[in-house]
Design a protein around this nucleic acid. Sequence first.
DNA 1: ATGATGTGCAACCAATATGTTGCACATCAT
DNA 2: ATGATGTGCAACATATTGGTTGCACATCAT
Lengths: 109, 109
Amino acid sequence: MSNGRERELADIFAALGDATRLALVTQLLTVGALSATNLAEGQAISRQAIVKHLQVLEAAALVTHERHGKEVLYALDGSRIEEARAFLNAISAGWDRALSCLKSLVETA
Amino acid sequence: MSNGRERELADIFAALGDATRLALVTQLLTVGALSATNLAEGQAISRQAIVKHLQVLEAAALVTHERHGKEVLYALDGSRIEEARAFLNAISAGWDRALSCLKSLVETA
DNA sequence: ATGATGTGCAACCAATATGTTGCACATCAT
DNA sequence: ATGATGTGCAACATATTGGTTGCACATCAT
């Protein structure tokens, strides 16, 4: 894993590492494309806060925006999600090996 | 998804959302259990910084520590990783649906 | 017992993240 | 044209993060 790629991956996880943004992602996933104003309705925080969260998600290439008339619709973009999935899959795959390695280290220490 | 669970999931992603911690995770995965001092060797940042990162990972239940003699070994704990995987899998699964939903919204707007 | 090595704790600093408010600008409908 | 609605920008406040340093304590080997 190259350093740049590692950073990129970290950005994706960091973007998902916030309860508000996670909620936004699931909402965009289930409902579809929505504006910041839509997303802010019924939410405790302001529209501007939502916009900032959307910008974080967009910086990580997890969402895209598109102007449509006077409103801006945000939607998920899944290409980067696969990267994160691949990482977690790798961890899961290496899991048993890591555990046995730990075991032997502890036992021989 | 309950609110508490959402927060928990966000913590996992947040813990992975840092290049240094990501490197720690991969190192622990490939090498096995290591002490903070081990992990800090050859690294640009101090042992204390590493310890703090390990504590973040441990707070998210991604690693555990175990004292062994005078040193403390940190190791990965994979149970929580599955949660994160499941979330990303759900996103991937809902993907095509989300895209078509966006498409129709945009076209009818 | 003593030095070397590893750990734990706390104070402190700088940068970034999260959220607010206020206001200006753009767009749509009437 | 004008009011309603949605967006964009910027200043600001505060909390959290990521890192440092210094020092005290614990453990091991000789």
